[in-house]
């Protein structure tokens, strides 16, 4: 799990062009949106692309985004749950 989380942080920085951040700047349980990292709705779409491109997981309903993309850990959980299927 911690390996997946570490990989995800690198991928998130790359996908969202967060060049001003280093992986260690993002906490595992830090909220990614609004008050946390300050990501927005376009970033949510980019994260959907990331899940599909890197993990082959399709998030069909964008309304699920806020729950899945809450923190790096919640994304990792979602990936783990859906990869094994």
């Amino acid at each position: 799990m911690s390996e997946l989380i570490a990989t995800l942080k690198v991928q998130i920085i790359e996908q969202l062009n967060l060049q001003h951040l280093k992986p260690e700047d993002i906490g595992d349980d830090q909220p990614l949106f609004v008050e946390g990292l300050g990501l927005d709705s376009i970033d949510a779409l980019e994260l959907i692309v990331l899940l599909q491109q890197k993990y082959g997981i399709k998030l069909a309903n964008p309304q699920d985004g806020p729950q899945v993309f809450k923190t790096v850990r919640s994304i990792a959980d979602y990936i783990t749950a859906h990869k094994s299927k």
Partner: peptide, 9 residues
């Protein structure tokens, strides 16, 4: 297949 929206906007 799947493209990222940032450039499109």
């Amino acid at each position: 297949t799947i493209v990222s929206p940032t450039a499109f906007i």
